[in-house]
Amino acid sequence: MDNVKLIRDAKLCTRWALGLTFFLIILFPGVMFLTGYSYSLAFFKGWTSLAIVWLVAAGLYTAIRPLVEFYMEKKAG
């Protein structure tokens, strides 16, 4: 991979990360707060469970993908 492609991909990933952070942490909960939505315990539990599942999935993907790429590279080479 050349540096130009790496820089372009890094910028793309940064934009996605900032955009998703803004939407999922600020915009979406902020709209519900401004409309006077009453957070119930069930809603909070669901939101927390979703966040935990998302974090576990992201962690597993981050941990397993390099191993799969390494295996595929060894198999091809």
Rank of each mutant, 00 (worst) to 15 (best):
D2R: 08
N3S: 14
N3T: 15
V4P: 02
K5A: 13
I7N: 12
R8T: 15
D9Q: 07
D9W: 07
D9K: 06
D9E: 14
A10V: 09
A10R: 09
A10D: 14
K11N: 13
K11H: 08
L12I: 13
L12N: 12
C13Y: 15
W16V: 15
W16Y: 12
A17L: 13
L18I: 12
G19Y: 08
G19P: 08
G19F: 04
L20R: 09
L20A: 10
F22A: 14
I25D: 06
I25N: 09
I25G: 05
L27Y: 08
L27Q: 07
F28T: 14
F28R: 12
F33H: 10
F33L: 11
L34N: 09
L34E: 07
T35D: 11
G36A: 05
Y37V: 05
S38V: 06
Y39L: 13
L41V: 15
L41Y: 08
A42F: 00
A42D: 08
A42Q: 10
A42P: 01
F43Y: 06
K45H: 07
K45W: 07
G46K: 09
W47E: 03
W47T: 13
W47C: 05
T48Q: 07
S49T: 11
S49F: 03
L50D: 00
I52V: 10
I52Q: 05
V53Y: 04
W54N: 03
A58V: 03
A58Q: 02
G59T: 03
G59V: 00
G59C: 01
L60F: 05
L60G: 12
L60V: 11
L60Q: 07
Y61A: 02
T62L: 03
T62K: 02
A63C: 00
A63F: 07
A63E: 02
I64S: 06
R65E: 01
R65V: 11
V68R: 05
Y71F: 12
Y71V: 10
Y71E: 02
Y71Q: 02
M72I: 09
E73F: 00
E73S: 08
K74Q: 05
K74H: 03
K74F: 03
K74T: 00
K75M: 01
K75V: 05
A76M: 01
